[in-house]
Design a protein around this nucleic acid. Sequence first.
DNA 1: AATCCAACGTA
DNA 2: CGTACGTTGGATTA
Length: 875
Amino acid sequence: MTDSGKPTLLVVDGHSLAYRAFFALPVDNFSTKDGQHTNGIYGFLSMFVNLLKAEKPTHVAVAFDTSRQSFRTRVYEEYKANRSESPAEFKGQIPLLQECLDAMGVPVLTKEDFEADDILATLATQGADRGFQVLVCSGDRDTIQLVTDDVTLLYPSVQGVSQLKRYTPEAVVEKYGLPPHNYPDIAALVGETSDNLPGVPKVGEKTAVKWLTQYGTLDELLERADEIKGVVGGNLREHLDDVRRNRQLNALLRDVEFEYEPEDLAVRPLDTQAVRDIFARLEFRTLLPRVFEAVGVEPEPVEPDVVAPTPVQAAPADLAAWVAQRSEETALTLTVVDGRPGRLGVATLTDVREADWSDDLAAALRDWLEGDAPKLVTDAKVQVKALRRAGIRLGGLVFDPLLAGWLLRPSLPDKSLADLVDRYLDEKLPVADPTQLVPETEGATPGQLAWFSLRVAEAQRGELPESVASVLTDIELPTLDALADMELAGVAVSKEKLGGFSAELGARADAIAQEAYAIIGKEVNLGSPKQLQEVLFEQLELPKTRKTKTGYSTDAAVLADLQESNPHPFLGLLLQHREATKLRQIIESLTVGIAGDGRIHTTYVQTGSQTGRLSSTDPNLQNIPIRNEESRRIRAAFEVGAGYETLLTADYSQIEMRIMAHLSGDPGLIEAFNSGEDLHRFVGARVFGVEPADVTPAMRTKVKAMSYGLVYGLSAFGLSKQLRIEQSEAKQLMLEYFARFGAVRDYLRSSVEQARIDGYTETIFGRRRPFPDLTSPNRVLRENAERAALNAPIQGSAADIMKIALFEIHGDLASRGLSSRVLLQIHDELVVEVATGEWDEVAEIVRVRMGDAADLSVPLDVQIGRGGDWDEAAH
DNA sequence: AATCCAACGTA
DNA sequence: CGTACGTTGGATTA
């Protein structure tokens, strides 16, 4: 509200202000990690938020042009015809900006055939008529004509979009010497070059104002044009039609037919989650609190549209009887406290029952829990593990909304039932307010969580394609079961081995550091990129390297390049220091992760990747060093546990290349894998036209890099850089390669094209990954999507195959009553702890299950190793 | 104290 | 200008 007590209506021209912001802010500082430019969006929102805060409008809307075409271009086809195409970097920002505004609860208005300014004019006029104080914010000078006592124009100054000049009638008179309604007359005479509307030659603002003051109105002036003397008078008489045309075109329409009236534009509560999501996508951080502050409302807790049934407390026997008579799918939620079952809730769509976990309850429910009765559990792995600790193996798991949500949209960060309730039901999951001692709002109970899970699942099933549903049922759920056991088992790690190695590395790092300090004559933190830059590029005056966001890169590749071009002892020491401290860090994180049982229990995140792979956290056991001899000492600390005989490692060789051979059907590549010859030797022989025996190591290295690069969408540039060869040679290598293995290139091309049509890629087993950016006008975005889309079916199919092998092995070991157990999965490798006397049987199971996990047109080769520790077993 | 960034480990 | 991940310490920001 303004001082006058009137409601305030703020209407903004989104396009013109975002465009100004686009040029005002450096593109380089405003783009996301995947290349989306955001400077226009950021600049606009920043200004908009300031406006909201300063003006506190009660009603608000942002208008956009629909296209360059409007009724004006039909009246005068040259209208704005001189405008160059707006840059591609800008175009993509408008839809994103509209998404932001939408999330903020701000109406986004467009109208086919009209410009944003006509929308502003209509709303301003209506608003003033209906008693609003109106604020118009636009970067188009024509909107000056809208200014009245009730309508103020906020116009960006040349300094930038954040400085807005207020045009009241007085301010307009002061600046132009005439009241606002005369402004279009001035503009018609002067012309507007940006709209491609030529005016009267030699007539500028001064002359126009003088004439209009003299004759009162434009019509009068044009009528009596012959009274004006001199060259300008002649010019005026020659351009009368131009002036009339200009005046016709620069008049803004105040009566556009419109679905909104000013009253409909009352400020709405913003959708905090949606704002968070879109800002996260755009990588806006500082803007978020500013938006929340400007809006002034803490995010309102939205009342749930549907209220969950009140849970019925049940005695163990009653609960057992109740679940036993259910034939339909029952949802189940178990609270987990320190890895143990807490309280159990079960639900159908109409009924919710609960009971605290107890031995009695466990006994009463065991048959049902372990049986095949269909059950639905959100985030099942955690609960499956808790039940296993309590001696119960959950059976009949048919659905997990968290897995389903990930399969549907692998890119989304939905990590909890609350996220899913928001996304699929558009409701808020009731949560107890943790900031209050006696919470005002009750959180959902376990049974109610189960009830919500059921409803989320219902919504998800509606959009779950059959192929994706089968991935859930046939791959993910069985995998979940295996992962639960792997996490519970953990892997034995020797603190002694790690500790000894860490001490050695520490001593070495210190010695190296001292030596390095001596060379540069001072002590710096070698782990600080900032201090290193000072030493390298200023003190030692080494040539500047690749730029990063914060300065110049000092990564290993850059240092190695520097060492070659400008050898300096400090560089070598720095690299050695990095290596030693890195290994120490890894050891440290592993040591912290060793539990009371002497084993590391990692957590596999089943919904952690875009492609279908697993990821591993706390600690990550999928990136334990292996590349050089020394670092393998860390692997050697992973040992067979007490009571077991040995470790078994099994890995797929070249699984991604094999999948590519299968998917492309390339006869040469298929022959390569069926020949039994070393792959790279075979490919090298074909590419270089020699006998396999005559393939030199250099040749092998080249085709190997090429083969692996293919799977990632490598370019000639990238290949040349990796192999340190000329780009022309890399290009030639690619040509020769594709001349022999052409079907591979055809496949890669067509698979991206298909993905562009479908909007997603699909693995051999039907797992999908959406790729909206394949049709983006933004080249960086599009090409990034193309490479990812090329890789997704290959990496994803490999992930599917490994998952299948994993749960089959897990199942076989259990069903045959073996004590051996799978411990780790590292994408294409499994580590199994083999019980005494079980080696032969286990090795056979692993070999067969991995080899038969998929039926491809090439064999799946499995390498098996045995040893007392992970390093030994790798040989 | 929380968050970002460069760097680097793996498949 | 090579896909997919997670963790770290230092720097930066709140």
